[in-house]
Design a protein around this nucleic acid. Sequence first.
DNA 1: TTGACAATAGAACGTCCGTTCTATTATTAT
DNA 2: ATAATAATAGAACGGACGTTCTATTGTCAA
Lengths: 183, 183
Amino acid sequence: MQLADFFDTNKRLPTYSEMTSLFSLKSKNSIFFIVKKFIEDGFLAKDGFGHLIPGNIIFGTKILGTVEAGFPSPAEEELADTITLDDYLINKKEATFILKVSGDSMIEAGIKPGDLVLIEKGKQARHGDIVIAEVDNEWTIKTFEIHQGKIVLVPANPKYQIIRPEESLNIAGVVVAVIRKYH
Amino acid sequence: MQLADFFDTNKRLPTYSEMTSLFSLKSKNSIFFIVKKFIEDGFLAKDGFGHLIPGNIIFGTKILGTVEAGFPSPAEEELADTITLDDYLINKKEATFILKVSGDSMIEAGIKPGDLVLIEKGKQARHGDIVIAEVDNEWTIKTFEIHQGKIVLVPANPKYQIIRPEESLNIAGVVVAVIRKYH
DNA sequence: TTGACAATAGAACGTCCGTTCTATTATTAT
DNA sequence: ATAATAATAGAACGGACGTTCTATTGTCAA
């Protein structure tokens, strides 16, 4: 759609004048009604002070149903919700960063070498969380567990050993999401 | 940062007047210089027609190094690149949608039940791609392979059998990314 | 205390934005 | 063909926006 394309490339919404080109019209008044329509349809919205902002449909990606449990037909697509991946995955933007996994120590947790992990700094690690931890001056990704009151770092791969940190244990952050991109 | 926060909540950049509140200043002129500074620092930018647009730092999430191969220190963080997940993962926004995986047929490919998969419709499937396919009126996620000129759908789980479609094979799309969110 | 310099405030201004009003052109029904 | 209605164009307008200019305040050195 024209507006989504413009927003993707320009990182802002077009002005009414610019929309005349986008929609091949010659009057801003025509745009006025088109914008009205788009607001009704959820493509656009107005914030508290009358400024035009993109609706969710402009930003987001469709979420459909569940595979292997009946699949949404094209007709049902209309009902689909939309989200942005960033909004969905990131809670505290300032404290979040991305790391590429290089080892296979978490392979059985479905984290493969080359995968990206989203880390949230400063988050309190709880039993079962996957964390980035510093042990002996090396950073590793492991499952954070507490056995009899003691912290242990458990790899998800029988090839590797459970780490029982004696003293200095530095948790860089908690893994809040895993992302794998193909190609 | 103030601008990122404003953009996150309002989905647009603040006006100069609004920035006076954001930065606790009383003159738009002061903002003028602050904006100048932000443009130099990459937080903001101006497009071809002088409109203020957010720089990558406002949108994006930091990409740091590789875990288990030396870990970026806080000092190095400055060098980090930033991206938005949407831009990174989605090529053709119009043709992309998200599906939740419910079975464990791709478990050995690191795709677990509950994971989200990003599907690109209409993309040509190639040998080795993971695809969403319709077989016998059911949709499944499988690896797309070609053996001796014939298409076969291979699960990544020994519990399941290889599917050799006789006639109607409908490929809904190719999996371009996998996303797993914790909690 | 005074002077120099930077930072902030305040006022002024031209431009463009979104809106409204009126005029023109298409479209459809009768 | 004519009238009625909808869609688009065009002109006009108030307001807000980003910018610039000038005034004031704060900070530091001598």
